[in-house]
Structures are given as structure tokens and as C-alpha cells.
Simulated assay, not measured.
Amino acid sequence: MSLIYILDLCAVAVCAITATLEAQRRELDLFGVAVISVIAGIGGGTVRDLLLGRLPVYWIHDSIYVVVGITAAMLTFFIQRNIRIPRNFFLLPDAIGLALFTVIGTSIAMSLHVNWLIAALMGVITGVFGGVIRDILCNEVPLIFRTDIYATAALVGALLLIALDSLGMAHNIALVLSMFVTVAIRLIAIRWHIHLPRFRAYE
């Protein structure tokens, strides 16, 4: 079992957890939570595979991804019913999920020998689209559009992985380092409210 496969399963589980926490705040029932959590968990990778022409998409021929997503969602659902989890708690697992999916998406694109820029974009797409789908289904403005540095953290992580790999670093070590850098950037942005320049409304 490869490190990429393990990280991919962890990413699906983490994304399903964050989707469950978000969905429960919308007072959805168990079925609604399960559906949103699974779709959010596999959404980014599905978009990546479609764009890269990797068909059928990864979870079609390996249903363990769906099983992991449903299991993580169910456990989180029942834990949340008995233990009140702070509203902002989901930001931590969301940052971890962002990092995991980013390095996985980038690594998969690199294995297909696409251009480095396309590989980085595939990493960002894999990292952010699950959260975008989650927020849309929960009738929220996607987190990527209303929060501190998010997609930028994914882009930095993706580019770092590509750079370290091109310098000859062992791929698994480069994966872990890039993941930690992505998480660190995201958490620092949350802690000190760092964001990119925004348009100011004129009156």
C-alpha cells in the first residue's frame, strides 16, 4: 500500500468530517449529511480525474473511498450529537484536508508527466473543490471566496512539491514537507487574518 493511497484515504475521511460539521449546522438529517460528506470527500479528485482524462474516476474502481467517506461522516455525526464541537473547530481538519488533497493531486498529475504548471493547478483543484462543493450544497458562500489565504496555500504547497521533486528529493519526503507547509500557511493565515488584496467598494 503506497503512501499516496494512504494519504488519499485520509484526505477523504478528513474532508467528510469537515463536511459533516458544516452540514449539521444546517440541521440536515443523517442521509443529507452522508450524501454531502461523500460528495465533498471525492469531489476534488473527481474533477481532477475528469480534467486529466483518468477514466473511470478513481472511486469508481475502488469503492473503499466511498466507504471511508460514509464511515467518517457517520462517526462525526453521532459524536457531534453528544459532544458539542466549537463552530470554528472544522477549520483545522479543513486545513489538513486541503493539504492532503493538494499534494495528492499534484503528485498524480506529475506521474502523468504533464507540464509543471498544470500539475500545480491540478493540485489546487483537488485541494479546494471538495470544500467548494460542500459549501454550495450547504447553501453557503464557498470558503475559498470568504476567508483568509486558502487556495494560495494550496498553490504554494503544490509548487513546493514540484520544486523538491525536481531537485531530486525522495518523493515521499517531499510529499510530507509540502503537506506541512500548506497546513502551516493556512493556519497562520487563520490566526493572523492574512489575506490577499481585495477590491474596495466605492460609495
Results as ranks from 00 to 15, higher is better:
Ala201Tyr: 13
Trp116His: 15
Ile36Asn: 02
Val33His: 01
His171Trp: 02
Gly168Ala: 04
His193Asp: 15
Leu52Asn: 02
Met179Ala: 00
Ala19Leu: 13
Thr102Cys: 15
Ala40Ser: 15
Ser63Thr: 11
Val141Glu: 06
Ile36Gln: 00
Tyr202Val: 09
Ile70Glu: 05
Thr152Gln: 03
Asn115Pro: 03
Asp135Phe: 01
Leu117Phe: 14
Leu75Ile: 15
Ile194Asn: 03
Ala170Val: 12
Phe145Glu: 09
Ile118Ser: 09
Gly123Phe: 13
Ile42Ala: 14
Ala174His: 13
Thr71His: 06
Leu9Phe: 05
Val38Cys: 11
Ala11Gln: 04
Ala201Ser: 04
Ala19Pro: 09
Ala201Cys: 06
Phe145Thr: 08
Gly43Asp: 04
Leu21Gly: 07
Leu91Gln: 07
Arg200Leu: 14
Leu50Met: 10
Leu143Gln: 06
Ala109His: 12
Val103Phe: 11
Gln80His: 13
Ala184Lys: 04
Gly43Phe: 14
Ala119Ser: 14
Ala23Glu: 00
Phe78Thr: 06
Ala154Tyr: 03
Pro197Ile: 06
Asp8Asn: 15
Leu167His: 10
Glu27Ser: 06
Glu203Asp: 13
Phe129Asp: 01
Asn139Leu: 12
Ala11Cys: 10
Leu91Ala: 08
Arg134Tyr: 12
His195Phe: 15
Ile96Pro: 01
Trp116Val: 03
Pro142Tyr: 14
Phe90Trp: 09
Gly168Asp: 09
Leu177Ile: 12
Arg54Trp: 05
Ile96Thr: 07
His193Tyr: 05
Asp94Ile: 12
Gly123Arg: 10
Ile70Pro: 02
Ile83Phe: 14
Cys138Val: 01
Phe90Cys: 14
Val103Ser: 13
Asp165Pro: 01
Ser63Phe: 01
Ala119Thr: 03
Asn115Lys: 15
Val12Asp: 12
Ile125Trp: 09
Val114His: 10
Phe77Ser: 08
Val14Ser: 09
Tyr5Lys: 07
Pro56Arg: 11
Gln80Glu: 15
Asn82Leu: 06
Leu100Glu: 09
Leu160Lys: 00
Glu203Lys: 07
Thr152Gly: 14
Ala11Trp: 00
Ala95Arg: 07
Gly105Met: 12
Phe77Lys: 00
Arg26Trp: 00
Thr76Val: 12
Leu21Thr: 11
Ser2Phe: 08
Phe31Asn: 01
Asp148Cys: 07
Gly32Cys: 06
Ala99Gln: 08
His195Gly: 09
Val67Lys: 04
Gly41His: 05
Val132Arg: 10
Gly127Ile: 01
Ala95Gly: 11
Val14Gln: 02
Leu177Gln: 10
Ile125Glu: 05
Leu3Phe: 13
Gln24Pro: 00
Thr106Asn: 08
Arg186Met: 02
Gly157Lys: 01
Arg134Glu: 07
His113Gln: 04
Ile85Gly: 13
